[in-house]
Design a protein around this nucleic acid. Structure first.
Lengths: 255, 255
DNA sequence: ACTGACGTTCGAATCATTCGAACAGATTTA
DNA sequence: TAAATCTGTTCGAATGATTCGAACGTCAGT
């Protein structure tokens, strides 16, 4: 039933977007480099770049072109529109202050997790996650919390679409193991992440749901594994998160 | 000499980008609404939306489609790539703490100003500016500081391209007046903004330049006009900014 | 049950896109 | 110094995709 194939895609538009993605993944480069990377003619890429430049999506650079700040304008707009962001943000700052760790707010789009906002505590560690980062849900504490609030059917669809790619040896890569984990999460109310995405990094995550029980996103606390373990992880921090998520949920329903 | 016309633009790509801009300016809407707004056929818009959705640039919404968080991923990447951002950020946080006001870091792209990062002080007021916001340079303290570091020719090009639209009665709308203002700014080292973009809002701005004197961007402090006036504005705060900009400049050249 | 509005699909005519070749300019090599 | 080889750029012509409009199914409201 994964009828994901688009009947008649606008290939020209897809090409332009592909050029943007190339500039993001490959860094600044010129028409020649992009053309060889994407298997297109130089002249074609050149025309696309000029059009993208007109709209501010790319800008000239010493090494050719790079993605323009117009995309930041769009991106911040997309974030600000998100109902969870404005409600969760002050609470996340508070949590970061209290715990000293890194606190994240994650939401789901198209079966993937997006980091909406991150608050840095006094002792928070540097991880690969940035705002805007797109991750696989099963690799995140917040992501697993979100999955646990979805129906089994919805989870199956997501797994079918995106698979269960591994980041570390601890990443859940088996569908059955994932469903067992989600059952545990539903039971105790929070999700754990023990080096499933970054070695030596642990995290707790709790889903934020709307009136009908559908997840709007999730919040999480992450930090070094030797600091986030035992009772602190599954006790104090989990309780703190559960309380915060509950507060956010109440505020969500009156905005 | 303003040979800005593109010879053979990729109109199909421009259409897709136009749909994105429509969703941003007009809020979430469906194919029918977008089509009537842009003067296109419903079916055309539909096909574009499906393609944009495949790439995550738009997502389904109760009211049709909205811009997707994939754009936040791109936008934050664009910001993080910017040399000024990582260097200026800690200094901005420090300034916000010290002054209690709102501190911004702005950079230029295609003759327009982009708000890279804003640090909120304890008493900072809420303004229309957000991160990512694109503004006219002549309407900002930071923007005028940037312009003052450009050559007259470059400024003329920018004015020719974008004009001098007004936001308040105080906005500079005359080219000669602008050049006089820029001369004053060069002389004293900092730019002022007195209700030129938002009524009752004042600001000071200082350019950040590279080794060759070309502006990389600018930093500014803004706040209510009754708090940012007299010696505090042109003395203490201006000095603070000049010192901060100088620090940033030094750090820029060794990164 | 009927109307109207919506998203969706499809065919056919048109128009724009694509490629490749050729150009000028800058930088590097001989 | 001059040749050579990178760029980025322009243009023509053939192909192929885009566009429009009409028609479909669905849903909400009357």
């Amino acid at each position: 039933m994964t009828d994901d194939e688009q009947r008649r895609p606008v290939t020209t538009a897809a090409t332009s977007l592909g050029i943007l993605e190339q500039l993001k993944s490959g860094g600044p480069m010129g028409p020649t480099g992009i053309a060889s990377e994407l298997g297109l003619a130089k002249s074609t890429v050149h025309r696309h770049l000029k059009t993208l430049e007109r709209e501010g999506f790319v800008v000239p650079d010493d090494d050719g072109y790079r993605v323009g700040l117009r995309l930041l304008d769009f991106g911040i707009y997309a974030r600000d529109q998100h109902q969870l962001y404005e409600v969760a943000k002050p609470k996340l700052d508070e949590l970061a202050e209290q715990t000293g760790e890194k606190v994240w707010c994650v939401t789901e789009e198209q079966g993937r997790g997006f980091h909406l906002y991150g608050a840095a505590g006094a002792h928070s560690v540097r991880t690969p996650a940035r705002e805007g980062t797109r991750s696989y849900l099963h690799q995140l504490a917040a992501g697993k919390a979100i999955l646990s609030a979805f129906s089994d059917e919805r989870v199956r669809d997501i797994v079918d679409r995106h698979g269960l790619p591994a980041k570390t040896p601890q990443t859940i890569t088996d569908s059955d193991a994932l469903f067992e984990e989600l059952a545990t999460i539903r039971e105790r109310g929070f999700a754990l992440n023990r080096e499933e995405i970054v070695p030596k990094l642990h995290a707790v995550g709790v889903a934020v749901t709307d009136n009908e029980g559908h997840p709007v996103g999730a919040i999480s606390i992450s930090g070094p594994s030797n600091r986030l373990r035992g009772d602190r992880l599954t006790g104090d921090l989990a309780d703190l998160l559960l309380g915060a998520a509950n507060e956010v949920e109440i505020n969500l329903n009156f905005s």
